[in-house]
Design a protein around this nucleic acid. Structure first.
Lengths: 167, 167
DNA sequence: AATAACTTTCAATTATTTTTGAAAGTTTAA
DNA sequence: TTAAACTTTCAAAAATAATTGAAAGTTATT
């Protein structure tokens, strides 16, 4: 496989993966493209490589910057803007999980707390509801914290040890 | 908040969360409904509660069974089928992550391996591509394994200890 | 201050995904 | 074996999400 083909395959794959995880395809593709570029890329070049419109490029670049995983860069003497992606994967993971936690998990937790604390009458149905949603609240809270600590854990020596023990 | 309202709120929230994570809304809603039901529910009742068509209910129940997180049940004397959800959350998490790993991560890893092993010419561009995709391959592989081990880890005493240390 | 070089915005269009509902299929009971 | 009680399938319709492109906005240069 030659370089151009490999690059294209990577961008397509990353885009597909993104859309399966609730991130729009173009956004994931732009990110993929920037990740494997060794230097900052202009909007013009992004449009060209991905065959997308100016508006599309602009909006998705904005979204990526809001997520904190793509940065703007200015080149001396050049008028236009260039973009680079966060390339440190641990950093990337932290930012993505923080952002999704903030946008999606935290609000869901709030609702879970609300619904799990209604006063259950003595019906088995209501008791089960409260029990199950409470468990879910605890579980999601724990998973959320864990994600947040994952990288930290991953780099932690004791963590590595535990990891090894668990094969 | 009264029970019915709480139940509805829960189902809606879980549905919204699902669609943000690449699972269709109805599928997540059916799952939510079954999770908080203390007894098996018929297709008729699911249709009624969620206000969805028979076809929709049928297809999404099938999908949930394919994921291994919803089961069919038969009641003595009753002709129709009833459904229940996996209610053990650790089990649920394991099944979901196994399934997503199998369907999405593993195929992506295969591509990542392919593209990261092209022969890079001496251009910095190609070198960077190979370097970055290789790192990504390792990272995704590690994260995938970690997810698989998460529950196990969560229940693990040493894990709990590490968890505490990390506050 | 006018113009050129660029970026952003957003209503309209297009593409994708989900949902419907009725016909076809299946199973059980009489 | 027929009919009733169900479930599944899938083409068409509806709903949702992404994309376009041109006008409006911004910033730098002369």
């Amino acid at each position: 496989m030659e370089f151009k083909e490999a690059k294209n395959k990577f961008v397509q794959t990353w885009g597909a993966l993104g859309s399966q995880w609730g991130i729009n395809k173009t956004m994931a593709q732009i990110h993929a493209l920037l990740m494997v570029s060794n230097e900052a890329v202009s909007m013009e070049d992004i449009m060209e490589e991905l065959q997308i419109s100016r508006g599309n490029a602009s909006m998705n670049l904005r979204a990526l910057m809001d997520w904190g995983i793509v940065y703007k860069e200015y080149k001396a003497g050049e008028r236009k803007e260039f973009f680079t992606a966060e390339k440190d994967l641990d950093e990337l993971a932290v930012k993505i999980s923080r952002e999704r936690s903030k946008r999606e998990i935290k609000p869901a937790l709030k609702i879970l707390k609300e619904v799990s604390t209604i006063e259950a009458k003595d019906s088995a149905e209501e008791k089960h509801f409260v029990d199950q949603t409470s468990k879910l609240y605890d579980f999601v809270l724990k998973a959320d914290n864990m994600l947040d600590k994952m990288t930290e854990f991953n780099e932690n020596w004791l963590g590595r040890l535990v990891m090894k023990i668990m094969k």
